[in-house]
Amino acid sequence: MNGYELLRILYGLFLGAFLIIAGTLTLTSKGELGIGFRIGYTYLSERARRKANRVSGIGTILTGLALILLSPFLPMAGLFAVLLLGLGGTLVLAYLTAKREYELEELSKEAPKKPGRSIESPRVGKYLILQLMFTGVSFALILTGEVPRDPGILLVASIQLFLLALTALVSRPLVFQLAPKFRGKMALGFARAMTVVSAMVALQLAVVALSPKASPLLLILMLLVSLGAVFYAAFVSLTSAYEEGYY
């Protein structure tokens, strides 16, 4: 066993163990703040919260087990794909479960005499347009052969599509309402943060296309830019969550 294989197995082991613990906490959550699958439907319905936590917890645990079991056989890109597919599928199923349970509960209640307060969705159109542009640049570089079409680069570029879809979802209050009251500040902050990450991916692929044999200094510079973009995205996300009232 070489060093790369050992690193890959340790990566799968530790990340898988973390997901198993997180999934167990979600599965056994009793409504504690910050634990479990939390969107607008789960704040409006206890029934939706319980069912969504069950689906989310089981899916997260299974994803963790898959990472541990497959780490000796799959490359890092394959493990990353398993992680994205497992967690992405879990999020979709948990969301659909919460939505269905909330609607079933609402159908069983009498209609209110007066309509409730209307929640306006935040406008994230400019962020969607920017991400479409960055994603278009990345796939144009791949399709024209300016960057290698290896699985790792294709997977990195595909992350931009995931961020694009997530940005569209965060604009819907009942999808991305992580705090009991929704004002849209956190959704806008997350949309801005995901746009920064998408821009960083496009920039890295552009550098690979322009400088196939980049110097160590350029690689260090790109690493610093990437870290800066990630830290900025995290800062924007946290501050917007604080402004929304989720702390």
Results as ranks from 00 to 15, higher is better:
194 M>L: 15
243 E>C: 07
23 G>D: 07
246 Y>D: 14
131 Q>M: 15
214 A>G: 10
159 I>V: 14
47 R>A: 09
146 E>M: 05
144 T>C: 00
76 M>W: 05
48 A>L: 04
84 L>M: 14
217 L>Q: 13
96 L>D: 00
200 M>E: 13
197 V>A: 04
72 P>C: 04
161 L>A: 10
48 A>T: 12
59 G>F: 10
166 L>Y: 14
80 F>D: 02
126 K>N: 06
51 K>G: 00
19 L>D: 03
98 A>W: 10
229 A>I: 02
152 G>H: 11
17 A>M: 13
188 L>P: 03
81 A>I: 12
203 L>Y: 12
64 G>D: 07
110 E>I: 09
63 T>V: 09
217 L>M: 11
11 Y>V: 04
70 L>V: 04
195 T>H: 06
78 G>R: 06
221 L>T: 14
42 T>D: 01
44 L>V: 08
98 A>E: 04
224 L>K: 04
215 S>Q: 10
115 P>V: 06
100 R>V: 00
236 V>W: 14
6 L>Q: 12
26 T>C: 12
125 G>W: 13
71 S>Q: 05
247 Y>H: 12
38 R>Y: 04
11 Y>E: 00
232 Y>N: 01
191 A>Q: 04
243 E>R: 15
45 S>E: 00
179 A>W: 07
122 P>Q: 04
233 A>G: 05
16 G>K: 13
111 A>Q: 12
202 A>C: 08
61 I>M: 11
229 A>W: 01
137 V>C: 07
98 A>F: 09
134 F>G: 00
69 L>R: 05
167 T>F: 04
123 R>H: 13
226 S>G: 11
13 L>W: 11
5 E>D: 12
113 K>Q: 11
175 V>L: 08
179 A>E: 10
45 S>Q: 07
5 E>W: 05
93 L>N: 03
104 L>M: 13
12 G>C: 04
162 F>L: 15
55 V>Y: 06
210 L>Y: 11
140 A>F: 02
188 L>W: 03
114 K>R: 15
101 E>H: 13
124 V>H: 08
52 A>M: 03
190 F>N: 11
209 A>D: 01
